[in-house]
Design a binder for these strands. Structure first.
Lengths: 139, 139
DNA sequence: TTCGCTGCAAACTGTTTGCATATTC
DNA sequence: GAATATGCAAACAGTTTGCAGCGAA
């Protein structure tokens, strides 16, 4: 059983076949999937799972903070299961696939804030860095 | 006449009332608008303009590199007319509005690349930094 | 006069929701 | 057995497209 399911179970999540399958699909994920791709993978293991359930489950996982929703330029959202490991994203402008990257910490130093006179009254609580380019097969 | 329209005209763009209005709406824009908001503003000046034309025009401006499409987390895309001025974005997690910000250049130093062993065969040609938080009215 | 642009409406994609049924705890 | 999750289908938002007519150059 995956760590993810274990953690969710102790938080009072009801474990059903559908939820297990969605969690399993996400668990082995290094290139993040769209909801539809998660559904496609899930169907291979549990043919009767519905798209709605996949969407609902992904939404719950996001709400619980176990999965991060990544959206890029009008394409379908992708779901990143590595919510607990700090990392950045490398996105292909061609096909939209997303890879996790872990640039050296010092490359990110000095980025944690935004000068007060550039904040326009906002509270800033996150800085996201996205590297964009073309993946090997789109090039 | 705006610089934008002037530039487009010399690139062979046919200037129509609708396109002029869309360009004018974008021109005075510092908090970027969604396609629907652009349409709403445009209707004030030209009541018969259609949504389809606004979408088409925005799409062309993006293709011409005059406007940048900014999409944040499954919300409607927003259109940033400051394509020629380098800047970053400050996004409200509450309502989705976007402000341009210009953090000091040295805060961004060392960010221009991604180490080769983290590139997974991608060519990287852009690094985007997005500051997220809450705007004054959502806080 | 020509070719490109517009408006309309219909199609489309990605996502959410209401409700009756089925399942987990 | 009670509460919750599922599946289906319908509704939805945002966006794109086909086509007949109109208008800028």
């Amino acid at each position: 059983m995956s760590d993810l399911l274990e953690r969710l179970r102790t938080r009072g999540w009801r474990v059903t076949a559908q939820r297990r399958v969605v969690a399993e699909v996400l668990d082995g994920d290094h290139v993040h999937l769209t909801a539809d791709e998660v559904h496609a993978q899930a169907v291979l293991r549990l043919p009767e799972i519905s798209r709605a359930t996949v969407y609902n489950t992904l939404g719950e996982l996001v709400a619980l903070g176990e999965v991060v929703e990544v959206s890029t330029d009008g394409r379908a959202k992708r779901y990143d299961p590595n919510a607990h490991r700090p990392h950045q994203h490398l996105v292909c402008s061609g096909c939209g696939i997303i890879r996790d990257v872990h640039p050296a910490g010092d490359a990110l130093a000095g980025l944690t804030g935004l000068p007060a006179d550039e904040r326009f009254g906002f509270t800033v609580d996150e800085v996201r860095i996205v590297y964009r380019g073309l993946c090997p097969s789109c090039r």
